[in-house]
């Protein structure tokens, strides 16, 4: 996983609430056995017309937003299916951060596993950032994870919250499984105690 430290980039406004993961990447594109290559289908039904051509009204189909690395949206972003194909599609397109008033839990969690930073900011701030983002090439938004601030194009700093553990993992680009395996002896011990205390817990066999 790539580390996330600071990002200065074009931000794309997507003024929609309840953007579900089916909308981010429809189920028919989940038949892949890879993590990559999904960017072309990101927001497929919003982005393309029935004949397969680009919908010119969709933000990611216009300059400079084709190069956006930050997405700004409204409430409950990423609701619905647990599919990690949603952050994979965002990442494959080039998105490294999503700013919204709140996120669905599974999507929020999945972002951190893929080097994407989800930033929760109040709705009024998101509206302000969307207005900034509409300045297109004349505006860059900066996200500084170490300092936990978003910098508006005018230099104003907006603080945001993030769990210390998730922040650390993202700043360092660490492999979570490797971290957990440092507790392997504790897991072994827990497993032995659990099986002794609840001997009726059944095993499944192939």
């Amino acid at each position: 996983m790539d580390a996330f430290t600071t990002l200065t980039a074009i931000a794309a406004p997507l003024p929609l609430a309840n953007v579900d993961t089916d909308k981010i990447i429809p189920a028919r594109f989940l038949k892949t056995i890879k993590r990559t290559g999904l960017g072309v289908h990101l927001f497929d039904t919003l982005r393309y017309r029935a004949d397969g051509t680009e919908n010119p009204d969709f933000v990611l189909n216009s300059e400079p937003y084709r190069r956006a690395q930050i997405l700004i949206a409204f409430e409950n972003f990423g609701c619905g299916s647990s599919r990690e194909h949603a952050p994979w599609a965002l990442l494959d397109f080039g998105i490294r951060a999503v700013i919204a008033p709140d996120f669905a839990d599974i999507f929020y969690n999945n972002c951190f596993k893929n080097g994407i930073l989800p930033v929760r900011l109040p709705r009024a701030v998101c509206e302000q950032l969307m207005a900034d983002a509409r300045m297109g090439n004349n505006a860059r938004v900066t996200i500084d994870l170490a300092r936990q601030v978003v910098l508006r194009p005018n230099g104003e700093e907006i603080a945001f919250e993030v769990d210390p553990f998730r922040k650390h993992m993202l700043l360092e680009g660490l492999d979570e499984i490797g971290q957990t395996l440092q507790h392997a002896a504790r897991i072994d011990g827990f497993e032995r105690e659990r099986q002794a205390a609840q001997p009726w817990l059944p095993s499944l066999h192939a």
Partner: peptide, 23 residues
Amino acid sequence: AFGIGTSEVEHVLATQTLLQRPA
């Protein structure tokens, strides 16, 4: 019982645990 993403599927396969904060 709760749903997880594919990175967490790998995490459970490898460690039989997840890193989680209480709801």
